[in-house]
């Protein structure tokens, strides 16, 4: 989120509350859970790192507010972030190691772990799709794309769990 905030400020300067609103607008329903405090903490860190500069602006009817703008170093950081094609860390590695550990220690049945994980992901997929349906029905903008991405990702994860099940069934018993 740090880089995303920086990128929004690179478009135009904003104070904290404006930035929160821009983030929420870009994210759709997922944006509802952006913690306001997190935005201010991140802004302070960005400022300490020299990536943004805060300027106090006097207001007639309200306390002064601090407007943040991106520095040259911040702009470079945004460009590097945009071009970085790495993909966020996924849960597969850890889950795979869990299966190996379960079989190795006998503390759990790998196939039961897979079944439980699949139930959990199916429930999530159901919830994500319900959310996407309500967005489509309400014609609520681009946030639905994010939900579709989550749904497709869950679908792929569930398919992977099926492959795990085929592999582990009958191996440990």
């Amino acid at each position: 989120m740090r880089e995303a905030m920086l990128a929004l400020l690179a478009k135009e300067p904003a104070h904290g509350y404006e930035l929160r609103q821009r983030l929420a607008a870009a994210l759709g329903p997922v944006g509802e859970v952006v913690n306001p405090g997190q935005v201010y903490v991140t802004l302070a860190r960005l400022e300490r790192a020299g990536l943004v500069r805060g300027v106090q602006v006097a207001q007639s009817a309200a306390p002064d507010k601090k407007v943040y703008e991106v520095t040259a170093a911040g702009r470079e950081e945004v460009a590097a972030w945009l071009l970085d094609s790495s993909w966020p860390r996924v849960a597969q590695v850890e889950f795979h190691l869990k299966l190996v550990a379960a079989a190795g220690t006998g503390l759990a049945d790998p196939v039961a772990l897979i079944d439980a994980q699949r139930r959990e992901l199916m429930r999530r997929l159901r919830d994500v799709q319900r959310l996407a349906e309500s967005q489509i029905a309400g014609d609520d903008g681009d946030g639905v794309l994010l939900l579709e991405g989550s749904a497709l990702r869950l679908q792929a994860d569930i398919r992977w769990l099926e492959a795990c099940e085929t592999r582990w069934t009958g191996r440990t018993r």
Binding site: V33, M122, R123, R124, D127, S150
Partner: peptide, 24 residues
């Protein structure tokens, strides 16, 4: 071998936070 209800999962706020990869 299994008969599962899919409704009644995570509270919506928790789900959204997890999707975003953030702490709620």
């Amino acid at each position: 071998v299994e008969d599962t209800r899919l409704d009644g999962g995570l509270p919506q706020q928790t789900l959204l936070a997890q999707l975003a990869g953030w702490e709620a």
